[in-house]
Design a protein around this nucleic acid. Structure first.
Length: 815
DNA sequence: AGCACGCCGACT
DNA sequence: GTCGGCGTGCTC
């Protein structure tokens, strides 16, 4: 009987496809294969062994010689797909990273970069040292640690130092290798002692390790094992005069891990083939990989291959089991290259960047480096979670509160949350770093689920800025104006923060009150003076500013209302004609040159939106002006308060570093609000406490779970109807009269689920489509039941309609 | 996702 | 008469 396997293909489908495996090809789970699909050929991943099929199956054409993906990644992908209600095929796409294409297989040649690991060259303060040690003491299993501290307290230094240590723990020094023996085994203390069956030669030849070699490995908790005797069924060895006997080799193979086998330059003994062929194959199947030392000749490599999975090493990829891999997740692409540079200057190791902005060549190279284990530090955005790591040992989520971790387009998932799941599955530690953690994180810290490492000292003893609150009556209040003037006179820099792009929020007719709105969406168009267009910030629709009102035809009646950063710049120039200004917003293509000119002090007033809140350090900046602190609170968003607080805190943190104490002037209409008070008095924890309490009362996350459904379509009536239908379907499914034996369950379910809506979305009409929202609030731990029902309903409903439904699990935005 | 098939309008 | 629009459906 021929073997059949289920293959996952990179298609937006929630389905696996079965294929037959021909006798002479050997595939196992996790391999990349080329399969015929329709009239095309595609690369997919062997996902599982398949059951019987009643149809004639096509055959797998070819196995691609790449390291197969780890079983945990399959588990993770399944989990993510199920939790977020994503078609599983979409995960094949992210795993393969857009690198594996049928017509480019020959390009998958890996160029090796060999780098020695060197010491970290930055000095940690005693506090940072303590934080580092606390984290390092617990690197062997799953744990979540909140690394908490103000901007400038050295969170990055601490985690980089942790990474350097971790990588060093796992790396094997070439110069430490003993010269005289054929092979040596090292296994991690605390793990069962198992040895590679290639060991028998050790029985007769003495291990001649230099003292410092042993010390080196012992200091890293590795224990040398020398075998004295070995049969296929039992093995003995001695360590520190104590004799260990391993009864049956293969029965406990599953438990082996953390064992390194190092081959020396000498050829592997001939009888290895004879004795251990089947066991070697088993080891390969269990993902044991020999670490070959450099200098091994190609003929030796071939000998090694013969006795195992013959094809694995043919691509020229040397598996490097010894490397540990660390993933640093960042919220935004622009931050990755900055961090890459910083890491390069502090740790030397193989660094790979990963985000959607890479060139195809870099993408391919980085992916291969990650897949074969030679990339040690991976700095990436959301999608890097799904890469086929070989030996992932630590995850760091920097700026963990940042809502950019929530992917809103295509597949909807929250990379921060999924990172925690991945860490749990892999049983590895994860560090969440932020000055203003998510409320959820604080909640878990309080409950004792997460560790808390706090840094309280800022770099160079810099003090927290002084925060003044001013009533928001003018765009630029007198206090702020005076502040700017004084700061410039002192030859320091000012940053003005206004979270609104463009020139004016909207154009309104003075005669009839008509407001110009987008023709595709129900939003007002924003006037951008530089481009001289009215622009829709949701669908990018553009139009010219009309001469006369399109509603009442009166000429010259349009008035521009509201202030955006372009207008703010104009006002500043009016007030301070000699000021040297720069503007930073997401409308610009390259931020780098602007940031450079700020650092070179060619600029003394920086005006910007959101983007300036993140990451950039300007040493000469001592005054931050928040033009309108209330902007984020306009929409009815569950997290509005939290997000606004985080943003303002983050912006305020830009002010005053090194030896200058900074000032922040906040203009607001609600000086008495909790957010502003907490910000002004620097009482972050009080804010969190009150906010948590209000969430508890409203039974909102983290005290419940939310799922948002967005129903959208071109026909308003049909869309509304579909939204009502899905709502009543859910009502029926979750509270209907069900046979009495199950009734208890149903009563619970009724209590467990609340359904709100349908209601027109905050932006009722977007991209030419009408939108309705339904919000589900789940009070139990498990939401899978509902997700399955939803999936089913959508699958059937979409068969004959123009209506689409997106399912947003744990929504972050609510428009 | 692609890429077919299929069923109706403006053209040599 | 046909070229071509994109609505629907399938891919092991």
């Amino acid at each position: 009987m021929t073997k059949t396997v289920d293959v996952l293909l990179p298609l937006p489908i929630d389905q696996l496809f079965s294929y037959a495996v021909e006798e002479d090809t050997e595939v196992s789970i996790g391999d990349y294969v080329v399969v015929p699909f329709g009239r095309k050929r595609l690369i997919g991943i062997v996902w599982k062994y398949s059951g019987k099929s009643d149809r004639e199956l096509k055959c797998i054409e070819q196995k691609i010689e790449l390291p197969s993906i780890r079983p945990k990644l399959i588990e993770f992908a399944e989990w993510v797909a199920q939790y977020n209600v994503i078609p599983i095929g979409m995960l094949a796409k992210v795993i393969m990273g857009g690198v594996l294409k049928v017509n480019q297989i020959d390009k998958l040649v890996f160029t090796k970069q060999k780098q020695e690991i060197s010491e970290i060259d930055c000095q940690l303060s005693p506090e940072q040292q303590a934080a580092r040690n606390k984290i390092i003491s617990n690197l062997n299993e799953y744990s979540v640690t909140l690394l908490d501290g103000e901007t400038g307290s050295g969170k990055t230094e601490v985690y980089l130092s942790v990474i350097a240590q971790l990588i060093k723990n796992y790396s094997i020094y070439e110069h430490c290798l003993p010269k005289r023996c054929h092979s040596i085994l090292w296994c991690h203390s605390g793990t069962p002692f198992f040895c590679h069956p290639s060991a028998p030669t050790l029985g007769s030849s003495k291990i001649d390790c230099k003292q410092h070699t042993i010390q080196h490995f012992q200091s890293k908790n590795w224990i040398p094992v020398s075998t004295t005797c070995m049969t296929p069924f039992a093995m003995q060895f001695t360590f520190k005069n104590k004799r260990y006997v391993i009864p049956a080799f293969n029965t406990q193979l599953d438990e082996c891990y953390n064992i390194r086998v190092i081959f020396t330059k000498k050829p592997v003994p001939r009888h290895w083939n004879l004795i251990s062929n089947q066991y070697t194959k088993q080891l390969y199947d269990k993902d044991w990989i020999p670490v070959s030392s450099t200098g091994m000749t190609s003929s030796t490599t071939k000998t090694t291959c013969k006795c195992s999975n013959t094809k694995r090493l043919h691509t020229g990829i040397t598996p490097e089991e010894g490397n540990a891999q660390v993933l640093i997740l960042l919220p935004e692409i622009v931050l990755t290259s900055q961090l890459v540079n910083r890491v390069h200057s502090q740790i030397s190791g193989n660094i790979a960047e990963w985000h959607s902005g890479l060139t195809p060549k870099a993408r391919r190279n980085n992916w291969l480096n990650i897949a074969n284990g030679s990339a040690q530090i991976i700095i990436g955005a959301r999608s890097s979670l799904f890469l086929p790591y070989k030996n992932l040992k630590l995850i760091i989520v920097d700026e963990e509160h940042d809502s950019s971790f929530k992917q809103e387009q295509g597949i909807i998932y929250n990379a921060r949350d999924m990172a925690i799941i991945l860490a749990k599955l892999e049983n590895i530690p994860i560090i969440l770093s932020s000055a203003t953690p998510l409320l959820e994180t604080i909640y878990h810290v309080k409950k004792g689920n997460y560790n808390h490492v706090k840094l309280t000292e800022r770099f160079g003893g810099a003090e927290l800025p002084h925060i003044k609150v001013v009533n928001n009556k003018q765009w630029i209040s007198n206090e702020l104006f005076e502040g700017i003037k004084q700061t410039i006179e002192k030859k320091q820099q000012v940053m003005l923060f206004l979270n609104r792009r463009g020139y004016a929020q909207l154009a309104v007719c003075k005669k009839c009150g008509y407001k110009i709105s987008c023709s595709n969406c129900t939003v007002w168009l924003t006037y951008h003076k530089k481009k001289n267009v009215l622009l829709c910030h949701h669908c990018s629709y553009q139009s010219k500013l009309p001469e006369k009102c399109s509603n009442c035809q009166s000429e010259q009646s349009l008035s521009l209302c509201g202030i955006g950063i372009e207008r703010l710049l104009e006002e500043i120039v009016k007030l301070l004609p000699n000021a040297k200004t720069a503007i930073i917003s997401s409308d610009q293509k390259s931020l780098g040159s602007v940031i450079d000119s700020v650092l070179k002090e060619e600029v003394n007033i920086i005006i910007g939106t959101q983007v300036i809140a993140k990451g950039h350090n300007f040493p000469k900046l001592t005054l931050v002006g928040v033009i309108n602190a209330d902007l984020g609170l306009e929409n009815s968003d569950l997290r509005a308060a939290e997000k606004t607080y985080q943003l303002l805190h983050q912006v305020a943190g830009r002010s005053g570093r090194f030896n200058e104490k900074g000032t922040v002037i906040v203009q607001t209409n609600n000086p008495e609000s909790l957010i502003i008070k907490a910000l002004q008095q620097q009482k972050r924890d009080l804010f969190y406490e009150i906010e948590l309490e209000s969430r508890r009362k409203a039974k909102m996350p983290p005290f419940s779970r939310l799922i948002a459904l967005i129903v959208f379509g071109k026909d308003q009536f049909a869309t509304q109807k579909a939204a009502s239908e899905i709502t009543s379907f859910l009502h029926d499914q979750c509270s209907a009269t069900i046979p009495s034996a199950l009734s208890f369950q149903c009563v619970t379910r009724k209590k467990e689920l609340e359904i709100f809506g349908p209601s027109p979305a905050a932006i009722n009409f977007l991209n030419n489509k009408y939108r309705y929202r339904v919000l589900l609030k789940i009070h139990s731990k498990h939401s899978l039941f509902i997700k399955k029902k939803l999936k089913h309903w959508i699958k059937n409903y979409n068969l004959n309609s123009n209506i689409a439904v997106t399912i947003d699990v744990d929504p972050v935005s609510f428009f």
